[in-house]
Design a protein around this nucleic acid. Structure first.
Length: 561
RNA sequence: GCCCGCGUAGCUCAGUGGAUUAGAGCGUCUGGCUUCGGACCAGAAGGCCGGGGGUUCGAGCCCCUCCGCGGGUACCA
């Protein structure tokens, strides 16, 4: 609908003023002005050397004729805004319109979550997992063949640190000692080892040298495909513990399962080979014993791809990952990568370097970044000290807050609370997570929307068996029209969220939708009204829209709570 | 130092490619319930949109500059 009208306005500009290629932006004005508004007249006025209102009036005359089937009113207001009001029939059509399939036939890779084995899952992982799931749902709904990828560092310095501490803790390379660690304790035990290794690396020079040696052994273990030595046994066992621990979280969160886990060790060799090959071609440069990419000519900074020890850094592995994606999903249309903000400039350097020898995957890669999740009261967290907020801590905090309010929320409401709280802010900024606010049944929260949905369903249940057909000759009353108008914004909201990869637009919209409904419901009888049929149909449309929107966020919409 | 991002109500945040009168939730205050689930609704108070300059008919939004906060800045990512 919106698109059709924009095209009509564009055509009118061409017909009346001979202006082609005029980008028309339609906005949603205040209800009193109409359903859509545009400022084209004011933008055209300058170039045409005409009065904006004059331009607007000429366009309005044209549009009244062209849009006679969809618009009930085209008016000019203020300095020259064109306001368009939809006819009831057009509005009803718009309200049941599906969002456009803008990714139909396209392949979109979405990489998110990306936890590193041997390290704990912190609140940031929870955030990228949930938001990544939402973005994947958005592009999938838009018709994309979606591939959900999970990339994790099972090699690299952090593994060296952990393995160093693990071996030390086991009193040597004794894999059998691992059996003494209870299954439930494995994640925290591994987390503690990482903190030990990290502290030792920073504080103790001889430990640092040992860790560097252990790191090399881990790479060697992969090169040799060693699954039998005691060291390898410890490595593979602990790596599996990590993957089991990640799976626990994903199951709890009820996110869409990943299509593929790509451990770093799978892409390292390709990355190293590529960087060495491109070193010979001059893309990368030697700097001492290290191999770097000089970012300065691109307005970026220089980064090390292969360190002085001859080991690949994360940069090189990302090169390998990017080429692996292109090889295994050839000619993908989009590769979306979601990470924390701190990697924004890092990723620019990596992509700039890839662009020098593999322009296609580089051009089709989109890097989205998000902020840090802090708990209300915001204490600075440090993984080095081990006092991080873990992913599961956030869920636990929501449960505790729910219990404290006495509402005793179900697990699906706890999930709704956490998902919605993390999704409702524009991605990119830091999130201050307030468990109480997230679980609250009033205010802008997931549970509020679940309740709003359940409430509408209960009205419908009461009217079970009644004829739900709309009576076509009855015009909408103003209050009904307001609700219908809000429902009709669903399609364009989803389209925008998809286009910009911004799930929070959906949150804002759903909350507004629920408020508009509550307003309607407060002042208008549904069951028992003379207009019962139309109104039940409206309630159903509203409930369906709410449910669809929540579904895009990975939030369930129970019929009763 | 340089690069990137961010400063909107007491708090947490929306604010579309510039636009008609800056919005919401929480909190505070005032009203409305033997209810189609009041987990709601109606209303009030609370803003030099970090400061200053510029462009424009018009700037929270664009440009410049300063201040503050966060991140990055060669061998972690």
């Amino acid at each position: 609908m919106k698109q059709d009208i924009a095209l009509a306005v564009q055509a009118a500009c061409a017909d009346v003023f001979g202006v082609d290629d005029q980008t028309v932006v339609l906005t949603r004005p205040d209800e009193q002005f109409g359903d859509y508004a545009t400022n084209v007249a004011m933008r055209l006025a300058g170039a045409l050397h005409k009065n904006p209102r004059e331009v607007a009036n000429a366009l309005a005359d044209k549009l009244r004729a062209v849009l006679c089937d969809t618009a009930s009113e085209v008016s000019v207001a203020g300095p020259g805004f064109l306001n368009i009001r939809l006819s009831d029939a057009a509005l009803a059509r718009a309200a049941s319109e599906e969002p456009a399939a803008s990714f139909a036939g396209k392949t979109v890779l979405v990489e998110y979550s990306d936890p590193n084995p041997f390290k704990p899952l912190h609140a940031g992982h929870l955030y990228t997992t949930l938001v990544g799931d939402m973005i994947a749902r958005l592009v999938e709904r838009a018709g994309a063949k979606t591939v959900r990828l999970n990339y994790g560092g099972d090699v690299g310095l952090h593994v060296g640190k952990s393995m160093w501490a693990i071996v030390k803790h086991l009193g040597g390379e004794h894999p059998e000692a691992l059996t003494q660690i209870a299954e439930a304790d494995r994640p925290s035990w591994l987390g503690a080892r990482y903190v030990e290794g990290n502290n030792a690396y920073e504080d103790n020079e001889s430990a640092k040298q040992e860790i560097i040696a252990v790191n090399k052994r881990v790479y060697q273990l992969h090169a040799d495909n060693d699954h039998t030595s005691p060291f390898a046994h410890i490595y593979w066992t602990c790596r599996q513990w990590s993957y089991d621990y990640f799976a626990t979280l994903y199951t709890q969160l009820q996110v869409t399962p990943f299509d593929r886990f790509i451990p770093e060790s799978d892409v390292t060799l390709l990355g190293v080979a590529t960087v060495r090959e491109q070193l010979a071609k001059g893309v990368y440069k030697k700097s001492g014993d290290a191999v770097v990419f000089e970012g300065e000519p691109f307005g970026l900074h220089t980064r090390v791809f292969i360190n002085s020890e001859g080991l690949p850094t994360y940069e090189t592995k990302d090169v390998g990952l990017s080429l692996t994606k292109w090889k295994e999903y050839p000619n993908f249309d989009k590769s979306i990568i979601i990470t924390a903000n701190e990697q924004a400039q890092y990723m620019q350097v990596v992509i700039a370097s890839i662009r020098q020898f593999a322009p296609e995957p580089a051009e089709h890669t989109v890097h989205l970044t998000h902020g840090v999740v802090k708990l209300q009261g915001g204490v600075k967290m440090s993984s080095r000290k081990g006092n991080i907020v873990s992913a599961l801590d956030i869920l636990a905090a929501a449960r505790v807050a729910g219990a404290e309010t006495g509402t005793n929320p179900s697990e699906e409401t706890v999930l709704a609370a956490v998902k919605y709280a993390l999704a409702k802010n524009r991605m990119g900024g830091d999130i201050v997570y307030d468990p109480k606010e997230s679980i609250a049944l009033e205010g802008n929260s997931g549970p509020y929307l679940q309740y709003a949905h359940a409430r509408a369903r209960s009205i419908l249940a009461k009217a079970e068996g009644m004829d739900m057909a709309i009576t076509p000759d009855q015009a909408f009353q103003p209050a009904e029209r307001l609700l219908l108008r809000k429902v009709a914004e669903f399609a364009e909201t989803v389209e925008r969220a998809t286009e910009e990869y911004m799930p929070h637009y959906i949150c804002t919209y759903l909350y507004e939708l629920a408020q508009v409904f509550n307003h309607f419901y407060e002042h208008n009888r549904v069951i028992g009204s003379e207009r019962q049929l139309q109104r039940l149909r409206l309630v159903e449309l509203y409930a369906d829209t709410l449910k669809k929107g929540l579904g895009l966020l990975g939030i369930t919409a129970p019929d009763a709570m």
